[in-house]
Nucleic acid binder design. Sequence first.
DNA 1: GTTTGTATTAAACGATCGTTTGAATGTCAA
DNA 2: TTGACATTCAAACGATCGTTTAATACAAAC
Lengths: 216, 216
Amino acid sequence: MTHPAPDNTRERLLIQAELLFSRKGFAAVSVREITSAADTNLAAVNYHFGNKMNLYLSVFKERWVPRAQEIRKFFKNFLSGKNHPDTSDVVRAIATAFLEGTMTDDEQRCQIGLMQRELAHPTEAISIVVDEVLRPMHHDIQKQIRPSFSKKADLEQLTLSIFSIISMILYFEFARPVVSLVMNQEFDSQYKSRVIDHIVSFTMNGINGFKEEKTI
Amino acid sequence: MTHPAPDNTRERLLIQAELLFSRKGFAAVSVREITSAADTNLAAVNYHFGNKMNLYLSVFKERWVPRAQEIRKFFKNFLSGKNHPDTSDVVRAIATAFLEGTMTDDEQRCQIGLMQRELAHPTEAISIVVDEVLRPMHHDIQKQIRPSFSKKADLEQLTLSIFSIISMILYFEFARPVVSLVMNQEFDSQYKSRVIDHIVSFTMNGINGFKEEKTI
DNA sequence: GTTTGTATTAAACGATCGTTTGAATGTCAA
DNA sequence: TTGACATTCAAACGATCGTTTAATACAAAC
């Protein structure tokens, strides 16, 4: 067989690299740190991925995107039960998919951390983030939420509203240590579900407010 | 005179360091990069600030905090005209102070970029950010906006609402390149004021929604 | 003019960075 | 057993990192 068997080392490298990159960012993580965490040799990164940046991109291609697709799937399944989901259903679906989906807490932090860092300081991976996830999800959400909006002129308002929802989700996850610090409350699962409730209520009111403004 | 004259090199270092740190983060910027941008010698950082981290902290102490205080001042002045500002006034004051205050566009990006990076990856500077700005501003906002809330039980909801406002402001500024990319629209001043309008409307509806929920 | 102290400079320090090398493994097919 | 190939490993590469040093330039004080 010319093709290699499913490679254990390669997988361990991806896992540890993802974790470290999401916590510290690309520049702050060394190859030695990754290979040490993956319990393998220094040269393993260059053997399996060519170089450090390619490892970073592979993390997005082989781990980040698949999980993002699970988030999308969760979002769709969440709404599949209802044939006419209202705005609050959609928003709750988004928030829950991101913050309480099928992922563990560490996986969520990892996923959102990597996304946030790419939004803040784009590398080549930004095209993956935007093309494979942001645009499609934006389209999904738009499609689901649009009935709550009346006029065509509201399209920009709709887009901005979606960004607002995303921003809250990312912020509560990303700035978690500081949010806990300011609110003097630890970020446990119970608190997380309260955050989700808040985002849903806050957003729903916001969007319904727009609707009332236009129709009344 | 024993005290040195107002030091030009020191000031140039602070300015360039602030700019580079806000764009790339602490780890991704080298001392040589800073001293080169400040048009001075490599050893200048260690002479004037001791080491790289101390330069980073000095950026927060000597440039970030003073500008944050100007933002706070702007926020207060914005509301000083009205003796009974309503919710939308307060929210507009926050958004305007952050996004259209007395600072230039570059200064805003700088200021918010540094803050975002500290929220995401706290260093020693996080105590400065929280103690000198986040807590006091949070208190200011709470004081101004509280009349819109009725029961004591809503205090957490109020706090979460403030976080939501901050999150939107930070997101639209921080993820500016991606927002432009997804919305296919450049982030000019006209667009920025539309974003402010959106945040104000969105937030006001959200908070008023809470009020209606509780009182009706 | 000499002294004193600050500021700047070129050069080098050891450490760590990403990457490369070549030999030593292990694993199958022939 | 042999050969071919994939994988791992220790070691080293040149480059760059933050930091230090010693020499120099410069100004004001005496």
